[in-house]
Deep mutational scan, measured.
Amino acid sequence: MFYPNSPQTSPQLTQIPYGQQYAMMQRQIQQPYHPFATTEPQARLYPYHYQGPIQQEQGGFITQQSTAASPQYVQMRVTPVDQSIMSGYPNQTANGSSSSSFNYNIHPQQQQQQQQQQQQLRHHAMPVGSVPLQDDRYRKQLIVNYLAPDVTSTDLHELFSRFGELDGARIIYDKQTNMSKGYGFVYFCHAEDAKEAVERMSGYEFHGKWLKVGYSTNPLNIVPSNSSPYVHAGSRGAAG
């Protein structure tokens, strides 16, 4: 039997160049792979992502010199942007860049009308829970959420009447099932009393439920100042 490094198959040491006398086997001759043993700084910083320098080929596509990437890492192929796409944008300079302001050559009167329309939209648009300043009635009506099913309009009136005089209180019921929808409205005579009720009743436990109280901004629920107070009856038909 002959071994790869046996004296019968191995040459004389004098015939082997210096430095390879003890590297006779194939696994010894093959050098191990060192990912950080390279002179390129990109490979030292990113050993798993770097795959060699990027070269520009004919046709405008950018390719990489090395083989496919590892399945664990996804390499994105980048193509140059066609400058003709950006030619339609206004205020574009000769080098292809555009300024931040756009001039669509709008007539001054049209621009003024658009600004007025935007101001009107901001004036009428009102986020949930906010209180408008032009109508004091919005500051007097509250919406009470997360009410228990057994709470009546009379219970709601008695709960909030300790903060001040009320114009009314009612629970909203479903017309088909005649069941409470879980929320109601309270109408105060003074805005200061309503503000105190919002601050003190939010998070209050009532009939096993934690109440959420806020201003009601729905104009359909506003009680006119010259109208008669609501009837605080315990029956659902009268309260709904």
Rank of each mutant, 00 (worst) to 15 (best):
F2V: 02
F2R: 05
Y3W: 14
Y3Q: 04
Y3A: 04
Y3H: 07
N5W: 15
N5E: 10
N5Q: 04
S6E: 05
S6F: 15
S6H: 11
P7Y: 15
P7L: 07
T9I: 14
S10I: 10
S10C: 05
S10T: 04
S10N: 07
P11I: 14
P11V: 15
P11W: 15
Q12W: 13
Q12L: 07
L13K: 04
L13N: 06
T14M: 14
T14F: 15
Q15V: 14
Q15H: 13
Q15K: 08
Q15D: 07
I16N: 06
Y18A: 03
Y18N: 11
G19E: 10
G19D: 13
Q20S: 11
Q20K: 04
Q21V: 14
Q21T: 07
Q21P: 11
Y22Q: 06
A23C: 15
A23L: 14
A23E: 09
A23T: 12
M24G: 08
M24E: 03
M25E: 02
Q28M: 15
I29V: 05
I29L: 11
Q30D: 07
P32Y: 02
Y33C: 08
Y33W: 15
H34F: 14
H34A: 09
H34M: 14
P35T: 12
P35S: 09
F36K: 05
A37W: 15
A37T: 11
T38S: 06
T38Q: 15
T39W: 15
T39R: 06
T39K: 01
E40T: 12
P41Q: 10
Q42T: 08
Q42I: 12
Q42D: 09
Q42S: 12
R44Q: 13
R44H: 14
L45P: 07
Y46G: 03
P47F: 15
P47A: 13
Y48W: 12
H49C: 09
G52S: 06
G52Y: 14
G52A: 13
P53G: 10
P53D: 08
Q55F: 15
Q55S: 09
Q56I: 12
E57K: 03
E57P: 10
E57R: 12
G59E: 02
G59T: 08
G60M: 09
G60N: 12
G60V: 14
F61Q: 03
F61W: 13
I62Q: 04
I62N: 07
T63L: 15
T63K: 01
T63A: 08
Q64T: 12
T67M: 12
T67I: 07
A68Y: 08
A68M: 07
S70L: 14
S70K: 11
S70D: 07
P71C: 09
Q72V: 14
Q72W: 15
Q72H: 06
Y73P: 05
V74F: 13
V74W: 13
V74S: 06
M76F: 14
R77G: 05
R77K: 13
R77Y: 15
V78W: 15
T79N: 05
P80F: 13
P80D: 13
P80H: 10
D82Y: 15
S84D: 09
S84M: 15
I85L: 10
I85A: 10
M86P: 04
M86R: 05
S87G: 13
S87F: 14
S87D: 09
S87A: 10
G88D: 06
G88C: 06
G88I: 12
Y89E: 03
P90F: 15
P90C: 08
P90V: 11
Q92S: 11
Q92T: 12
T93M: 15
T93G: 10
T93R: 07
A94N: 08
A94E: 05
N95E: 04
N95C: 06
G96H: 06
S97R: 10
S97M: 03
S97H: 14
S98K: 05
S99H: 15
S100E: 02
S100F: 14
S100Q: 12
S100M: 03
S100I: 15
S101Q: 13
S101M: 15
S101G: 12
F102S: 04
N103W: 15
N103F: 15
N103Y: 08
N105V: 14
I106F: 10
I106H: 03
H107K: 09
H107C: 06
P108R: 07
Q109L: 14
Q110T: 12
Q110D: 04
Q111V: 12
Q111M: 06
Q113E: 08
Q114S: 09
Q114Y: 15
Q117V: 12
Q117K: 06
Q119T: 05
Q120S: 12
L121K: 02
L121F: 13
R122G: 13
H123M: 06
H124N: 10
H124Y: 04
H124P: 12
A125K: 03
A125C: 08
M126L: 08
M126E: 03
M126G: 09
M126T: 04
P127Q: 05
P127L: 09
P127S: 06
P127F: 11
V128M: 15
G129H: 07
V131T: 03
V131E: 13
V131A: 11
P132A: 09
L133Q: 05
Q134W: 10
Q134S: 09
D136A: 07
R139C: 07
R139H: 08
K140R: 10
K140S: 04
L142Q: 03
L142Y: 10
V144E: 00
V144D: 01
N145L: 01
N145S: 01
Y146H: 01
L147V: 10
L147Y: 04
A148W: 02
D150E: 09
V151M: 02
T152N: 04
T152P: 10
S153P: 03
S153D: 02
T154W: 09
T154D: 05
T154V: 06
D155P: 11
D155F: 00
D155C: 03
H157Y: 08
E158F: 14
E158W: 15
S161K: 03
R162I: 13
R162E: 11
F163R: 05
F163A: 04
G164V: 01
G164W: 03
D167C: 04
D167H: 05
G168V: 14
R170Y: 00
R170S: 00
R170L: 01
I171D: 01
I172W: 00
I172R: 00
I172K: 00
I172P: 00
I172S: 00
Y173L: 04
Y173G: 01
D174E: 08
D174S: 03
K175E: 01
Q176H: 12
Q176M: 13
Q176S: 11
Q176D: 05
M179G: 07
M179Y: 14
M179Q: 12
M179I: 06
S180C: 03
S180Y: 05
K181C: 01
K181D: 00
K181V: 00
G182E: 00
Y183E: 00
Y183R: 00
Y183G: 01
Y183Q: 00
F185D: 00
F185S: 00
V186Q: 01
Y187L: 00
Y187P: 00
F188Q: 01
F188N: 01
F188C: 03
H190M: 02
H190C: 04
E192A: 03
D193L: 01
D193E: 05
D193R: 05
D193A: 10
A194M: 00
K195G: 11
E196A: 11
A197P: 04
A197T: 01
R200M: 07
R200C: 13
M201Q: 03
S202V: 04
S202D: 02
G203H: 03
G203Q: 03
G203S: 02
G203R: 01
E205K: 05
H207T: 01
K209D: 00
K209A: 00
K209G: 00
W210P: 01
L211T: 00
K212C: 01
K212N: 07
G214E: 02
G214F: 01
G214R: 01
Y215K: 00
Y215F: 04
S216Y: 00
S216V: 00
S216D: 00
T217P: 00
T217C: 03
N218H: 05
N218R: 02
P219T: 01
P219I: 01
P219Y: 00
P219V: 01
P219L: 00
L220N: 04
N221C: 08
N221L: 14
N221H: 13
I222P: 02
I222T: 09
V223S: 04
V223K: 03
V223Y: 14
P224R: 12
P224N: 08
S225R: 15
N226D: 03
S227Q: 04
S227W: 14
S228Q: 08
P229S: 06
V231L: 11
H232F: 08
H232R: 09
A233E: 03
S235R: 09
S235P: 12
R236T: 03
G237L: 02
G237T: 03
G237R: 08
G240Q: 13
G240M: 14
G240S: 10
